[in-house]
Write a protein that binds this DNA or RNA. Structure first.
Lengths: 134, 134
DNA sequence: CTTGACTCTGTACCATGGTACGGAGGTTAT
DNA sequence: ATAACCTCCGTACCATGGTACAGAGTCAAG
């Protein structure tokens, strides 16, 4: 069996509500191959914990900066044997995140200084254009 | 005078090359109000250090997570007197960046663990779907 | 056994931040 | 002075990640 038969009990609307996304978003993910479209046994399609789990993963992976295409690949990989590829995707993202975090940290510090600068005087311009010059 | 008359000597192509963006991007920024469109005195429009500076600012501000619309406002504000608004924009972004940085850091740590996990064994799946469960 | 809510499917539309293209005109190197 | 290349302008198109809507079918409560 391709999937446990337990608790396949949610309609798409309930699944969407449980995951905190819109119904249309779920259908969009199905079209993009991130979620499978269950068979229409009892006339209306039913979803379960499996799908909810994937939706949670999708949210976290998006926050980590993966594109939907990469997330699709990760979800495919989850069931499979290709540890090398999985590792590759994860490592590449770690590298990208390290760079991104450093960049955001620098930007944050610049803006913190700018805000302080703007807070000091009460009239005249504060040096916005210069704010990112180190 | 609205702008120093010095060294207004770049064509749009040179300006684009100097800033590391495409010509079409500069025209797009003009349409969006982030750059002004110089008069057509000597038949072809000329740009200067002023514009290059703005383009550098735009890049940094984008990296800081401002939208083009916010950047447009910041550029307007740079010349003006509204320190309160400038401070507001900067402070809001600092807050957002602090949250974002923390989120990315958590994601990074999860992915680092996943990569290590995938590197350990040589066969079988590694726990991708579970990777963001704390 | 009807009424109202939900589902299904296909297709269209949206925001953001660009990128490309066509045709007319300006500019520069040889 | 002419070819090769740039600029100008309007408009169209692109990717990403959704969001909306119409029309037909299904389901559940009273």
């Amino acid at each position: 069996m391709v999937q446990s038969q337990a608790a396949q009990s949610l309609t798409i609307g309930k699944l969407a509500a449980a995951a905190g996304v819109g119904v249309e978003t779920i259908r969009y993910y199905q079209r993009r191959g991130l979620l499978q479209t269950p068979a229409r046994d009892r006339e209306v399609r039913r979803y379960g914990a499996h799908d909810l789990r994937r939706l949670h993963f999708i949210r976290q992976a998006q926050a980590a900066g993966f594109t939907l295409e990469e997330i699709r690949e990760l979800l495919d990989l989850d069931a499979g044997e290709d540890r090398r590829r999985a590792r590759e995707l994860a490592s590449a993202r770690v590298t990208a995140l390290d760079e991104k975090i450093a960049q955001l940290q620098r930007a944050r510090d610049s803006l913190k200084r700018l805000a302080a600068e703007c807070g000091k005087g009460t009239s005249g311009p504060c040096p916005i254009l210069a704010s990112f010059d180190e």
